[in-house]
Design a protein around this nucleic acid. Structure first.
Length: 932
DNA sequence: CTAGAGCGCTCG
DNA sequence: GTACGAGCGCTCTAGC
């Protein structure tokens, strides 16, 4: 078929495919000889998905285009072109020719030309196809190709699964495709080492091009530019800019040795394809494609154990098979497992228990896995599952190794410093086993690995990770346990049903570990994982198990007092409303306020119900007595239900203490999250609420000591955004909010009023949150224009802030993540979204490095703390983001404060040299209210 | 009866 | 339509 009108050409950027495949997969090797083939495997998977995805589509011609050789005409123009490219990884080099073979095996045209980049060939073909009247889709996300978009040519980003049209190009470059090279010539490209105009980025470049029409006009009329620096750059660097344009301009006249007609879509040749896939030993892919094509899959020899690297991930995933797992019912069957673990040096471990509360749950069984697909389950305390038999249900089921005997066999392995124990959320298993006298160490945690690499991209639970990275949905627990009232605990599950479920968890964990472990350093987060995530596990486990003493009597008395006051308020509210209704129902309250009483300001939410938040009621309080009563009632209701009542239910009957659980991966920024109960939101701001903290007490002869970082986020902002005035103020020990107010409103410090300071404080916080006029206006209850005026003035006085915000958002857009000073990466998946989401994402991106760096700092302090206070009669109990709470013997308070303060104030050292000091305030008392 | 969404409030 | 990051108790409704 001759290429012409109605034809549709797909051009696949092969080199981009290869690099993506290489970085997405672990270093897989061919079983028979250890040849690296990870990238080839990923490449073939992408090609197969491409072929399947286009089945029945209108594509008539297709080609995969590759780079060839490293020297191109661009190097003749500029010898530094792509000079700072990193060398190709050693294990990728031998895979390059194999990807050509793969393309040919799929019977897709495979094109390259010595001395030309793939981009030039793509450009030439696209132009030819367009001139012939056809349509073109370029499958790539390379921004250098965006200059080709338009007039029937579009791009498709296979990664994000979205096409890029003219509007997409304008979004990226601020100009249409025809002016993309002009913008690139100005902005340069650090990856390809294109110099561009120093100090001009994409945004400024787009602005200039849009104003002057084209690069040539801009350079000719450079004298007219107002900004002196910019004018000088454009005049002085004219040659460099013109050279840059030649470097980024794609060559649409590459002398091709083939025509469009040669690219016609061809049916795959099953025999040839199968032969190639079998040669690569891709078992799963061979099977899948053979089924698709309806041909027989060729046999692939099994692996020869002596050549396969020990423990190396295999190229093709072994299917999950619940039948294949071993159930260990006697000690003689356990011994060989223990021997194999000793030989191997690592093992994936998972515990099954009677509940989710590690301080109460009892051990039911243990799973182990050292090779994918080969896992075992050791049932220990399963009961006879006959629910009708009231006596039998408490008896241990037959065929289980006695608990003590099994633990005695496992303990030496689990505590052996030369054997790595791998878990998914291993803090849970660590705590359970600790209660049975086993101190698990050393450890690795796949959940934490995922968090370090993919924080912000998705959750890190086992089901999510397994589906996403292993393509396997683990057996759900629901059918085994049931739900609601009729739910049973795991010890009541039949051992035969428990085995595939439990062993699979260990299997999944092991496979995730094999996948993640080598990826950590490629993702450049090994240090983050090893210094900020993993070491926290034993530290938090210890804190959680120790718990904090809570005085039930104090809570109980307060609860009764609250109940009485609430009853009184409720009667008054009903009286004022003229009818009885549920004060706790915003919907009912809304109808009373806005319909019955016709008060102003009634807004309805998405469910069509009135919304009655506190600030609205606050406004209404000037018009009527009822809203104030409701506000008072709500405060009491909150205190009673969430704190005085619910907290009591969390007091552990054995310890008399409350044991929270910290989630290391709970917050995207690196902060911890506290659950069951949340001890990070115990009231403190209101006088009545603060009294809840009187119930958090020290044991007799001890006191509670609280140490908290003073203004840590603002200090970090001063450092990151390099604000001289802020840094100076901190170094002088000034009241930072008063200083801000003085600077902004031209009020001398000795004439400062509380109100002016309050406004400055709100602005300081606003900056950390990614300030907006709307948000500040709402917070300060002032007109939006006035709030905007404040912000403008702030940016004027502290110009570094604006630059920090712009730079951070720019970085997020380019890389898809932002970073803390310690290298933690927080992914910003929505940063390129449109509409209101864009605003959210930008503010989150601005806030994340600040909040995240503060979180890293206190994590570092916590990791060092146990050693620092080991000799003292003291325990670290709680973390509340910028505060650590300790319980310490009365006579050791001063030593504890000295030691802990040293650790906290020096927590950034030596990894990061901050331009500001970290300052820690300390307090002490018989209870948390006094200590804070 | 149970699960989940929405609201509102607590903290740093 | 908006400040950043979290968790939890209550009400209400949809669906078993």
């Amino acid at each position: 078929m001759t290429f012409g009108k109605g034809c549709h050409l797909h051009l696949i950027d092969g080199s981009a495919f290869i690099f993506r495949a290489y970085h997405a997969l672990p270093p897989l090797t061919r079983k028979s000889d250890g040849l690296p083939i990870g990238a080839v495997s990923g490449f073939c998977n992408m090609l197969q998905r491409y072929v399947e995805g286009n089945h029945g589509g209108d594509v008539t011609h297709v080609a995969v285009i590759f780079d060839k050789g490293s020297h191109t005409f661009r190097n003749d123009l500029y010898d530094q072109y792509k000079a700072n490219r990193e060398a190709m990884p050693e294990d990728l080099r031998p895979q390059i020719p194999l990807t050509r073979q793969a393309t040919e095996a799929f019977n897709i045209a495979c094109k390259e030309m010595e001395g030309y980049e793939a981009d030039d060939i793509i450009a030439t073909l696209a132009v030819q196809a367009r001139e012939a009247g056809g349509r073109v889709t370029i499958i790539s996300s390379d921004k250098d190709l965006m200059q080709l978009v338009g007039n029937g040519v579009e791009m498709f980003d296979a990664m994000k699964n979205r096409s890029i049209d003219r509007d997409g190009v304008i979004e990226k470059f601020g100009v249409g495709p025809e002016r993309v090279v002009d913008v690139q010539a100005l902005a340069g490209d650090s990856v390809d080492n294109v110099p561009g105009a120093p100090g001009i980025g994409i945004k400024t470049a787009a602005l200039l091009i849009n104003e002057y029409g084209s690069l040539e006009d801009l350079l000719d009329r450079a004298e007219e530019i107002k900004q002196p620096k910019r004018r000088q750059t454009l005049i002085e660097k004219r040659d460099q800019i013109e050279l840059s344009k030649k470097l980024v301009q794609l060559d649409c006249e590459t002398p091709l040795e083939f025509t469009l007609d040669d690219l016609e879509v061809r049916e795959p040749d099953p025999e040839r394809l199968m032969e190639f896939l079998a040669k690569m030993e891709f078992r799963t892919l061979t099977k899948r494609i053979s089924e698709k094509l309806g041909v027989e899959a060729p046999a692939i020899p099994e692996k020869t154990p002596d050549t396969a690297e020990e423990g190396a991930p295999t190229a093709e995933a072994l299917p999950f098979d619940g039948e294949a797992y071993e159930c260990i019912r006697e000690i003689d069957a356990l011994t060989p497992w223990i021997d194999r673990i000793r030989e191997r040096g690592y093992v994936a471990v998972d515990t099954e228990t009677t509940g989710l509360n590690e301080m109460i749950a009892e051990l039911v069984g243990v799973s182990l896995c050292i090779d994918p697909g080969k896992a075992c389950y050791i049932p220990l305390t399963h009961k006879d599952g006959d629910a009708d038999d009231l006596f039998g249900s408490d008896a241990l089921a037959e065929g289980q190794i006695p608990l003590e005997e099994a633990l005695a066999a496992l303990k030496p392995v689990l505590e052996d410093p030369s054997i790595l124990k791998i878990g998914q959320n291993i803090k849970y298993d660590f705590k359970i086993l600790k209660r049975y006298g086993i101190a698990v160490s050393p450890i690795d945690d796949t959940m934490l690995m995922s968090y370090a690499m993919h924080g912000g991209e998705h959750g890190h639970g086992m089901d999510t990770l397994s589906e996403r990275y292993l393509g396997h949905t683990p057996i759900p627990i629901k059918p085994l346990l049931g739900s609601g009232k009729s739910a049973i605990t795991f010890d009541k599950v039949k051992i035969d049903d428990a085995t595939p479920y439990a062993a699979e968890d260990a299997d999944v964990t092991l496979r995730l570990w094999q996948l993640f472990k080598p990826q950590l350093h490629r993702a450049k987060v090994t240090t983050v994982y090893e210094t900020l995530e993993r070491p926290l596990v034993p530290v938090l486990a210890q804190m959680e198990m120790h718990g904090v003493k809570v005085d039930r009597e104090v809570l109980s008395r307060m609860s009764n007092a609250f109940a009485q006051k609430m009853a009184g308020l409720e009667a008054e509210i009903h009286e004022l409303a003229g009818e009885s209704f549920n004060v706790g129902s915003p919907a009912q309250l809304g109808e009373i306020l806005f319909d019955k009483m016709s008060l102003p300001g009634g807004k309805k939410g998405k469910t069509g119900k009135y919304s009655t938040p506190a600030d609205v009621l606050e406004d209404l309080a000037t018009e009527h007595d009822l809203p104030r009563r409701v506000l008072d009632w709500r405060q009491l209701s909150k205190l009673k239900s969430t704190y005085t009542d619910a907290l009591q239910t969390h007091i552990n009957p054995d310890t008399g203490r409350v044991h929270t659980s910290y989630s290391i991966t709970g917050a995207n920024t690196g902060r911890l999250a506290s659950t069951d109960p949340n001890l990070q939101n115990i009231p403190v701001r209101s006088e009545e609420g603060r009294r809840i903290r009187e119930a958090f007490v020290a044991e007799p002869g001890n006191v509670l000591v609280s140490l908290d970082y003073s203004q840590i986020e603002l200090r970090i902002l001063a450092h990151i955004a390099q604000i001289p005035a802020l840094k100076q103020a901190f170094s002088d020990g000034l009241d930072i909010h008063a200083m801000t107010a003085s600077e902004m409103f031209d009020v001398p410090l000795d004439e400062m009023t509380p109100d002016i300071r309050r406004q400055a404080k709100a602005i300081n916080f606003g900056v950390i949150y990614g300030i907006s006029g709307f948000g500040l206006a709402r917070n300060l209850r002032i007109p939006r224009a006035e709030a905007q005026g404040f912000i403008d003035r702030y940016f004027e006085r502290f110009p570094g802030i604006r630059a920090y915000m712009d730079d951070t958002v720019g970085f997020a857009k380019e890389h898809g993540y932002v970073q803390t000073l310690f290298g933690r990466r927080i992914h910003t998946t929505e940063i390129n979204a449109k509409g209101p989401t864009a605003g959210f994402a930008k503010r989150a991106a601005i806030n994340a490095p600040i909040q995240g760096t503060a979180a890293d700092v206190i994590r570092r302090a916590m990791v060092r703390m146990p050693t620092a206070i080991a000799e003292l009669p003291a325990r670290m109990l709680l973390q509340v983001h910028d505060e650590l709470l300790f319980e310490v013997a009365e006579d050791a308070v001063d030593s504890l404060i000295d030691a802990a303060r040293d650790v906290m104030e020096g927590a950034a050292d030596p990894a990061v040299k901050l331009d500001v000091n970290l300052v820690v305030d300390a307090g002490q008392g018989a209870n948390w209210a006094e200590a804070h």
